[in-house]
Simulated assay, not measured.
Amino acid sequence: MSFASLRRFFLGSSVVHGPVAAISKHQLQRPEGPRKFLLARPSQSPTGPRPLVILLHGFGASAAQLLGQGFPPSPLAHWLEIAEREQCLVAAPDGSGHSWNDAFADARVNAKTDDCGFIGALIDELIEARGVDAARVYVMGVSKGGMMAFRLATELAPKLAAFSAVLASMPLNSQCAPPQTPISALLIASSTDPLVRYGGGSFLKNRRQAGAMLGIEASALVWRQLAGLTGGTVSEELPHRQAKDKTLATRWIWGKDPQQLQVSLIRIDRGGHAEPSPTRRYPRWINWLTGAQNADFETAELGWEFFKDKRAAFVGPAPN
């Protein structure tokens, strides 16, 4: 086995194709104490209000790992290239104890902090201090962070223009009320994810962290019904990049106008608990544990494609 092959097996790989936004460390005082977050800012001076993308890490991970500053290489670190290219801000907060209070009533190791209040206050702070466009605030979370994204979409919906939950589902037993406000939603999930059951329920090995879940399609239906998007759909199989990649990506979109409410589901058949990316690849030994990583699309790029034309229906002070 060559050195390059050994490196990919143990460390994975990360390829950057363009300039990236610079990262700085910050904290925000909250009732539970100081809460940390990273902020990625493009090098060019702003010419007007900038969109904001909030990224939420998975269980046991961190904001640093999510933005490519830790192991393993996170596909969502590609947002740093998008931030520089598209002149947007990217904020990555840290959960409490590397987790989130995501409303799963039966998740026994859930954080107890007011994470909705924290993210709401973070949005307000960045609007006031960093010139964020209050109508263009978006959230993308992966795994446990995706579950938190569902809660934020439920409780902070008036402040968000759209959200994305990656490798995550909604709780079957929730601590908070059902969502009431329509909001555009992008769901990315794997049909054979060993940690998040596509059809709902839970796996014994991660029940302490997640609890019982709705199915992925049932979760999408919640947001489709709120948006009145229960009719026809457009579906497509995404172009396959690598012959040796046995996974297959199919996208469904409800809602024709990208500037209006839309719900989209991307299903990865034969995929595992790994964000799709052709440029940032998990170590192969991790693939043995969590399943195959699709290489047909860049998760961050599809997120930006979905977010960029959407605006919040209401702009006002974020709940805290």
Rank of each mutant, 00 (worst) to 15 (best):
K144G: 02
I119P: 12
G228Y: 00
L156V: 08
V20Y: 01
S191W: 02
Q44L: 15
L238W: 04
Q175E: 14
A63F: 10
G97D: 09
D309A: 09
G232N: 01
G141I: 09
I286T: 08
M170P: 00
A243Y: 04
E217V: 12
D115F: 13
G95C: 10
Q69C: 09
G48N: 08
A162P: 01
G316Y: 03
D124F: 03
G211E: 07
G228H: 02
V263R: 05
C116T: 15
S164Q: 14
L214G: 05
A185L: 15
V234N: 01
R251G: 00
R41L: 15
R30W: 11
D114G: 04
A121D: 11
S143N: 08
Q69W: 03
W304H: 04
D106M: 09
F3G: 05
A77N: 05
W252P: 00
L67N: 10
R241N: 10
E275Y: 00
A292P: 00
S219L: 04
G33H: 10
A111Y: 08
T192L: 06
A313R: 14
Y282T: 06
S235P: 00
L89P: 10
R50Y: 01
G146L: 09
A129M: 08
P42G: 09
G200L: 11
P239E: 01
P51A: 09
Q293H: 03
K112Y: 01
P283W: 12
S62H: 08
R8E: 14
P73N: 07
I127N: 03
F150P: 00
S62C: 12
G97K: 13
A83D: 05
A153R: 03
P179V: 07
P31G: 02
A168K: 07
A61D: 15
N173V: 15
P34D: 11
A165S: 10
F307R: 06
F37M: 12
W252M: 01
K246N: 12
W100F: 10
L66N: 03
